[in-house]
Structure formats: C-alpha cells, structure tokens
Nucleic acid binder design. Structure first.
Length: 214
DNA sequence: CCAGACGTTGTT
DNA sequence: GTCTGG
DNA sequence: CCAGACGTTGTT
DNA sequence: GTCTGG
C-alpha cells in the first residue's frame, strides 16, 4: 500500500515536469501522512493545474466526511467498479507528485520502514483520484492513491505499491484515457532501509530518508 | 419494499 | 448516489 | 502508514 | 479491538 510519502523537490521542478504555469508555495516534506493537505495535479479546462487537497477520499454521497480516513488508497483491480471510487475514476483523475514513498516490512515482530525512490528521475507521479464533497457547513476536496501489486524489486519488502504513471502517459491519465494500472519496472525504483523515526507522523525532517544499516 | 454499506492493509 | 442483503 | 485514544460530569 | 488524528 502507500501510507506515507515525501515531496522535497523544488516547486519549479514540479511545474516543469507537469507542465504547470503555477505551483502553490510549499515546504519540503519528508513524512506526508493521510489526512494532511497534499499537492495534486489535475485537468482544468485543457490545462494541468496544481491544487492542495486532503489525502483520504470522501465520496460525494457521504453523510459524514470522516469516512475519508479509510479511503487513502484505491485498488487498481477494482477502482472502476467500487461505489466509492468509480465516478472519480471516470471523471476526476489526478497525478500526485512524490519524491519517494515508505513501505513497512514485518521483521521479527517489528515493522521496519523502507524508502522507495525514483531511479533515473526526479519525481514519481502516483495515479490518483480526487473528489469534491459538499456538506451543509463545510466543503472539502480530497484524494486517494491507486495501488497495485508489487513489482519483483518491491515484493521482498511489501506486496503492494502505488501505481506510478510514466510521463508519456500523463495526458492520457488526466483526460480519462486507457492507462494500464500496472506496477512500474524494477529498474525505475531504488529501495533502502531507513530509521523507524518515520513511524511518528509528527516527525518530519530530511534525515528520515537517509539509509540505515541492516 | 427498506436498511445498510460503500475501503485497504495486515494479521490471525 | 447506487448496490446488496434481508 | 503508525500512534494514541478509547468517558462523563461539573466547574473554571 | 477499533477508531481517530497526524
């Protein structure tokens, strides 16, 4: 799955790679957790546009937006059918820029975090969905990250991983085209063991992505 | 018909 | 909103 | 994803 | 055990 990630590229780099005329100012982040505001790229009137939305998709029909806490990920295998995601899958897709992501592996009773980063690229673009929810007193924009089976390189650490869209597929994904939601190539990622300090979602500093022995 | 769910992951 | 279960 | 809470009453 | 908050 994908329950924590990082984004520490300069906003100008994000603008260049995603064809954006503006990107909201943001601080580098090394421990982005569900329920926080995250940067997404979506299609708006034939242009790519960045926005900050809450991670945890709240379906349009939800009576209580706290349901979003359980909608951080959507399975690629079923995203087109599930009531919570299918409308967004057809009409409200997004790309989610990331410098890397964390996955935990059970190691002798403990859960050990690993950091996965792009090999030969500056950023990942996760396949995502977004939604707009309107309550009586509150309106919310939210998103979810689509996951798929792990590729061979990830598999020893974790059996799922986020869908990573290649730059050639950005336009098709954002405009509702057919893009296979498959794991990326083994060569596209690097993996390293990192400190368990990342477990605490309130901790956020560059040291979290540094390699740890073991 | 109405009531109730609508999700993923990891662990057992 | 829409589908499944009762 | 992990960490941390999980409750009510009455008073300030 | 399960839910909420970060």
């Amino acid at each position: 799955m994908c329950g924590r990630y990082t984004l520490h590229a300069h906003p100008d780099v994000v603008a260049l790679l995603f064809g954006l005329s503006e990107v909201p100012a943001y601080q580098p982040r090394f421990n982005i957790a569900p329920a926080s505001q995250v940067l997404i790229v979506r299609r708006d009137q034939e242009r790519n546009v960045a926005a900050q939305v809450r991670w945890g998709l709240v379906p349009r029909w939800a009576k209580d937006p706290s349901i979003g806490a359980r909608m951080n990920n959507a399975r690629a295998e079923t995203v087109a059918q599930k009531p919570s995601f299918r409308e967004a899958y057809r009409k409200r897709r997004c790309l989610i820029p990331a410098s890397g992501f964390y996955e935990w592996k059970a190691e002798g009773g403990r859960r050990q975090p690993y950091y996965v980063y792009p090999a030969g690229a500056e950023l990942f673009a996760f396949a995502g969905l977004w939604e707009r929810w309107q309550g009586p007193h509150l309106s919310l924009e939210t998103c979810a990250i689509i996951t798929t089976e792990a590729n061979a390189k990830m598999a020893p650490v974790h059996e799922r991983m986020p869908v990573i869209v290649s730059p050639a597929d950005y336009p098709a994904w954002l405009t509702g085209g057919e893009v296979p939601l498959k794991p990326c190539a083994d060569e596209a990622i690097g993996i390293r063991r990192v400190s368990r300090a990342v477990n605490n979602a309130r901790v956020d500093h560059a040291g979290l992505v540094e390699p740890e022995a073991g």
